[in-house]
Design a protein around this nucleic acid. Structure first.
Lengths: 265, 265
DNA sequence: CAGTGGTCTAGACCACACT
DNA sequence: GTGTGGTCTAGACCACTGC
């Protein structure tokens, strides 16, 4: 078993980090994968926060006592996982939902004509934000105990004066203590950016399950469509670092002027 | 402008290929990108066919007169584009829809309970296969002239005796000359594998646009659901090498026991 | 065993951003 | 100019495959 022991997260970083040893076979894991894990730890434990500049490849190479090329390969993978963004001449930054000029990185709904920019920003309306005891149907995708306290948010998004998305989302109450409709209403920009700045939770990845359903009375009213209109039901589990599920969301999408877009490869 | 001239696709390959020159700035393109393009050309022009073993990194490095590392980086990108598959100790192979043990690489419909393997293979039924004059709504996504001759295939897929997908697909008649319902019916395995072996067309990438619709009478009948049932409408444009669109497809999916799955990152 | 892809290193040079 | 990431090279060694 080869391994490198975790580095001293020394603030001034002259602190000698343990040397790397590359040993033989069983449970072999490439050095750059180990480096990737170490960097990942520093992302998780908040040593580098969303938007931050992380140390240069040279510095990291010195810190972990490996060659720059090895650090590079580790960072390459983190970049292709969208955990980190490289900018030539400037450095490598922790990815964030805040400054992604694209407004909603995880929203796959696009207007049928024109693009999202031309459509302008969504108008958001918080309908409610309350603490609830979690039904099993919500806790199980989140890996929580049934009965745990969750925060449930309900909101409507409108594009060009047309209400288009009605969604509920559930968050673990323990982590999102203090989240209120007022906070949500005051906040500008993507909700996931708020989660980063206020709760230290960065959403990294998500899984969506899509079905077609008919609008019930409640949905019909909020989305201003006849009862029975076909809608997309989009259920999402969003994950933080470490594949920890942190949000369950269910959206109903009108698709009379929009479509859900996906790329296969 | 730096460039490397295209190599002699010499069968025996001792043939000296032109040397690479890496010149200065304007319209700078990295060497490994140029190598990637050259390999791509060999994939397109059929020098290496789906399933084939391509030359080793050393051979390609010699052929293009660059270092192995440069070829490696080119192949890395091709592999992450799913155009090529690396197998340690064996070599690098051209990707193919034929031997992907996963039956349908581009189909995102999954059973709500269990997984696709446990569900068993789809039962396929070809309803029709005919030559049509293309309406603009089809030709435009395919980048063809309106009025061009297309082949239109209609089929139903059933999972566990339940008809679940009704789809139409359109293919350029010029490329798919000779495609018949009989050919399609006799063929085992993914349709895209047939396209590779019979027509030399490899589908590489696709874009899907998804909406929710209500079943009309025809759909309701084939899918054995009441008229008005909400269905997913999945429109797909599939591309070959070079981003050339080669297929337009429209599927109606029942989602009472299945869902469309997507991963966001 | 030889051949393939996979990892790691060390060093050189380029393109880009800021100061 | 200095520092950053980006490209390219050359060589060594490892892990996997099949003969």
């Amino acid at each position: 078993m080869n391994s490198i022991t975790p580095p001293d997260p020394a603030p001034v970083s002259t602190g000698a980090d343990p040397a790397v040893t590359q040993l033989l076979t069983p449970a072999f894991s490439p050095l750059y994968q180990q480096i990737k894990q170490l960097i990942l730890q520093s992302l998780q434990n908040g040593e580098w926060k969303p938007g931050d500049l992380i140390p240069s490849e040279q510095e990291l190479a010195a810190r972990y006592r490996v060659s720059q090329g090895t650090v590079r390969k580790a960072i390459d993978e983190l970049a292709s996982d969208n955990l980190v963004v490289r900018r030539q001449g400037k450095g490598t930054f922790v990815a964030t939902h805040a400054e992604e000029h694209i407004q909603y990185r995880f929203l796959r709904l696009h207007p049928d004509v024109g693009d999202r920019d031309s459509e302008g920003p969504a108008a958001r309306q918080i309908l409610s934000c309350k603490r609830v005891r979690a039904p099993a149907e919500i806790t199980s995708p989140l890996g929580l105990r049934t009965g745990e306290v969750l925060i449930q948010v309900t909101r409507v998004l409108a594009f060009q004066q047309t209400p288009t998305i009605l969604e509920d989302l559930w968050l673990p109450g323990s982590t999102f203590k203090g989240l209120t409709a007022e906070t949500l209403g005051r906040h500008q920009g993507p909700m996931y950016a708020l989660f980063e700045s206020q709760f230290g939770v960065r959403m990294v990845r998500a899984e969506e399950h899509i079905k077609a359903v008919c609008a019930d009375e409640v949905a019909a009213q909020w989305l201003q469509v006849p009862v029975g209109t076909a809608l997309l039901s989009v259920e999402r589990v969003a994950y933080t670092y470490n594949d920890t599920p942190m949000e369950f969301r269910r959206g109903l999408y009108r698709t009379d002027r929009h479509h859900y877009r996906n790329t296969l490869s």
